[in-house]
Design a binder for these strands. Structure first.
Length: 479
RNA sequence: CGGGAUGUAGCGCAGUUUGGUAGCGCGCUUCGUUCGGGACGAAGAGGCCGCAGGUUCGAAUCCUGUCAUCCCGACCA
């Protein structure tokens, strides 16, 4: 093994160039590929499998909470998009338009959906008549298109996969409850499945969704201390309903505008997983969504009994419900070790002639590199319990990164100094004025991440304008 | 949309200054020997040098245009 050869396949050191490291991991772990259209990416089987596991979890939670999946059209007439003023202003600049059908120019151009609020509202205006029709709890898994000027794998695509939930309720209270419920499901996904701790909060007026009355967000901190908005849940009030003429007769026979919510989580979360857990050997996948949880690497596989034992072991682990791959290709064991580390497989199981004699195998954790010799007796339980340990360790490490990098500042200068020297989130009081938010961006390069749901209710002054303030806000540099 | 960079084999690059018909490493194919941290040998396959014009006896190389991608900003899930 020459060092020269290693250099050919190595990825960029994350501390030297985090951006390049990220791109290297996306490509070399075979998650994604570029295409001939800017901003449009191929989700390769291994990357898509991660998304499928996330989908499986969310889809189950959505259905448990009463939501049904639907499929809406991909094209939206311009006139429909324009019905809600804030919404069109927010999205029109980044819409792609269909202007021709075959060679004929269309009478009205059609927008490729950047999001589907307008389509749902139009539909609902036809089918909602009575309080008995409510609530409507819909979700769709689809792709949407936003003509972004710059793009990066997972973090910013022109076309990306997501789910968008859309619901309609008779009362404001019920709609707000729905909005918060869905935010909590996203937070559960992040914390209990992806091992990513979150900060839950509300977006400022400046940062909220176009047309929303209130936007809830979960913010995650990446390894380089930048923020990633990982999921959002919006309360619309009844503004959309009024703009689209949705009305129902309530129990008192009063014609009433219902309240709407929407909530979405996209494949961007895969970028979050990569940047939260990854290291200089490549991807590190949280065990609960890893397409391969245990990879079995035979050693000296041509020797009698080795492959047979590996196959038996694979069957045994699969029967216990684990996702297992046995790599019996003719690559060397060392090559396989490096390959599956790059792909972030949580647990590696090595089995060779020496182990066979002792009825044991070697288990190696991806997160810590820790190697243990364990008996083949009860291997399913050993593996499962190690996978849980890995999940917990990943979460603890990410939580430490988050907690260690939240700083408090009492002046703009202090906030600026923290951002320049340390990064991370800066917690301050805030008066609520847009002007101060803009100034923070201008002076310290940070945008507001959120007003955390847990507000300590401290009275003081806004560090930017010096006026009385009581809201706690997090600032940061975001992806 | 501004600033920077790059387009040559699947990937990474050399060759361009000084024009002469394309090369290296990895990967790929076949055979053999290997196998507990990216194995070794031998023999092979693979190119409209981003695209379009122009100059020239001759262009990867010079000129003009154009397209695309990546990175950094402004905008966004």
């Amino acid at each position: 093994m020459s060092t020269e050869k290693k250099a050919v396949t190595a990825i960029t050191d994350m501390d030297a160039d985090f951006t390049q490291w990220y791109t290297d991991v996306c490509i070399k772990a075979e998650l994604i590929d570029y295409t001939s259209v800017k901003g449009m990416f191929i989700y390769r089987p291994y990357g898509y499998a991660i998304w499928e596991n996330i989908q499986a979890y969310l889809d189950k939670r959505f259905k448990e909470t009463g939501h049904a999946n639907v499929a809406m059209p991909m094209l939206i007439p311009e006139s429909l998009l324009q019905k809600e003023k804030d919404h069109v202003e927010g999205f029109a600049p980044e819409c792609a338009w269909v202007t021709h059908g075959g060679s004929e120019e269309l009478e009205e151009r059609l927008c490729v959906r950047p999001t589907s609020e307008t389509v749902f509202c139009d539909h609902w205006s036809h089918i909602v008549h009575s309080w008995r029709d409510l609530p409507l709890l819909y979700n769709q898994w689809c792709s949407v298109l936003r003509w972004e000027k710059t793009s990066r794998p997972f973090l910013r695509h022109r076309e990306f996969l997501w789910q968008e939930g859309h619901t309609l309720h008779a009362t404001e209270e019920e709609a707000v409850t729905e909005t918060e419920q869905m935010l909590n499901i996203y937070a559960d996904l992040c914390e209990t499945v992806l091992a990513m701790p979150v900060v839950k909060g509300l977006k400022t007026d400046k940062e909220k969704f176009a047309g929303a009355e209130r936007t809830y967000t979960i913010e995650c901190m990446m390894h380089d201390k930048k923020a990633l908005q990982s999921g959002t849940s919006h309360f619309f009030g009844n503004g959309f309903a009024k703009a689209f003429g949705i009305a129902f007769s309530d129990k008192n026979n009063q014609l009433t505008a219902p309240f709407e919510t929407s909530w979405g989580l996209s494949t961007r979360i895969l970028g979050g997983i990569i940047m939260t857990h990854g290291d200089n050997r490549g991807l590190v996948l949280p065990p609960r969504i890893a397409p391969i949880q245990v990879v079995i690497v035979p050693v000296a596989q041509h020797k009698a009994g080795v492959l047979e034992a590996c196959h038996q072991l694979a069957g045994q682990l699969k029967a216990a419900g684990l996702r297992v791959k046995l790599d019996d290709s003719d690559q060397s064991p060392g090559w396989k070790f490096a390959e599956y580390e790059m792909k972030g497989v949580p647990l590696r199981l090595e089995l060779g002639p020496k182990d066979l004699e002792k009825n044991q195998c070697v288990l190696v954790r991806r997160d810590s590199g820790e190697k243990t010799f364990v008996s083949l007796e009860g291997i399913e339980k050993t593996a499962q319990s190690l996978l849980d340990d890995i999940h917990n360790a990943l979460f603890a490490k990410a939580q430490k990164n988050l907690e260690d990098n939240i700083y408090t500042a009492e002046s703009l200068e202090e906030a600026k100094a923290i951002q320049e020297q340390k990064g991370g989130f800066v917690k301050t009081l805030w008066c609520g004025e847009l002007e101060c938010e803009l100034k923070m961006k201008e002076e310290a390069g940070m945008t507001s991440r959120c007003l955390p749901l847990e507000q300590p209710h401290i009275l003081g002054v806004c560090p930017i304008c010096g006026k009385p303030a009581h809201k706690t806000i997090y600032w940061g540099v975001a992806y």
